[in-house]
Design a protein around this nucleic acid. Structure first.
Lengths: 209, 209
DNA sequence: GCGCAATGTCAACACCGTTAACATTGATGT
DNA sequence: ACATCAATGTTAACGGTGTTGACATTGCGC
């Protein structure tokens, strides 16, 4: 309808979908946070000022890009288990937590720049907005996984706030150390995930594993 | 001897200790990573080019500043317990881990910009250098604390690499979530530290608490 | 098919990191 | 004491950056 069939810019005065193109080009850059608007624009055969028809500022573009990244992360979480389907049994509940941890680690591994953008100073506001939107977010999965551990009897008591804090901290921390190239956190994602999840389970009171 | 008594720059052609002054001014800035050399220099009543007599580049200055920050963090760790004095008993060994966690959290709380500088993309090389220097570093304390838990009988087996990874991840992650303004990690430092350490202990196999 | 809002261009501003050429200075050796 | 020289500062300039205002082109809705 409105979108020209070509997304690449030929000699046309109007690009067609510059907003999306800018975000995609930025996401494709190896060093997201250090790209320049001018470089980005000229790479798309467009003037730098054109970007300001779509974003208030460079920061606004990065914030929007962070939102895209949060969406990607959430999608990875969604691929690990269905938020609305309760875990069938203890084994499945534990597997969900494990898959979640591995997804977290893998995302950090594959997109470290995006990871830093999401959890760096820029996107604090972006994350806050994503949270108060009400819709299920990436923040819904970890609590759900813990709840599943309870309903399947892996843990005896409903997960306390401290359990969520602890679990989240551990998974997030392992990913952060990985992005930071800290030696202790390198190695196979599956291995790190297993080491960490095993101890998380013990930490929140899952006995007899 | 060589240093003029005044550290503030009066009309003198030579500043006296510009290198230190630049680092201090940068550390005092509210948003370390986004300061400009020119602003920094002009704030000290000095030309921007003067900074290049002391640092190869802006990045080099930030790297050096990160090294300073790592030193400060290490000092906080050193204040929690003596690396060379073994823990007297189980209670003391546990208290050491707790104080370490709280120190970690407090540092992140009080100097979030420095925290980001240290663990961000810039200082990867800096941290690597600090590690291979051989001297005791901030990376020595967590392993030592875990070892203390073993020697005092809190845990039955010597700490495995996975135990270090797990403990480090959790503490680091809690601090990172805090810096990132994630709601679950806010609240009193002592409380967050206690919640997290309690579960870490369980996670690494400390029973009967 | 006219007109207007959307979307682009161009030119300019102030600022930035960085460098080269030059200036001042404090310490050092005789 | 004094010349010398390395250390440390200055100024001027380069190319690059984010951002803005004035103007140009275009496609969609009446």
């Amino acid at each position: 309808m409105k979108r020209p069939s070509e997304s690449s810019a030929t000699g046309r005065y109007h690009h067609g979908d510059l907003r999306r193109a800018l975000l995609e080009a930025a996401a494709a850059a190896p060093d997201i946070e250090h790209i320049s608007l001018r470089e980005l624009a000229s790479g798309l055969g467009v003037s730098a000022a054109a970007a300001y028809r779509h974003f208030d500022s460079r920061e606004a573009l990065l914030a929007e890009l962070a939102a895209v990244g949060i969406g990607q992360l959430q999608q990875r979480f969604a691929d690990t288990f269905d938020l609305h389907a309760p875990a069938a049994d203890a084994q499945e509940a534990i597997a969900r937590l494990y898959r979640l941890a591995v997804a977290y680690l893998r995302f950090a591994d594959e997109q470290p720049a995006m990871w830093r953008l999401i959890f760096g100073a820029y996107a604090v506001q972006t994350r806050a907005n994503a949270l108060q939107s009400g819709a299920p977010t990436s923040y819904s999965y970890l609590p759900a996984a813990l709840q599943g551990l309870y309903t399947t009897g892996v843990i005896a008591a409903p997960p306390a706030p401290g359990d969520l804090l602890f679990t989240w901290s551990t998974v997030h921390g392992a990913a952060a150390l990985r992005v930071g190239n800290v030696a202790a956190a390198q190695g196979e994602v599956e291995h790190v995930g297993a080491e960490v999840v095993q101890r998380i389970l013990r930490g929140i009171g899952a006995y007899g594993l």
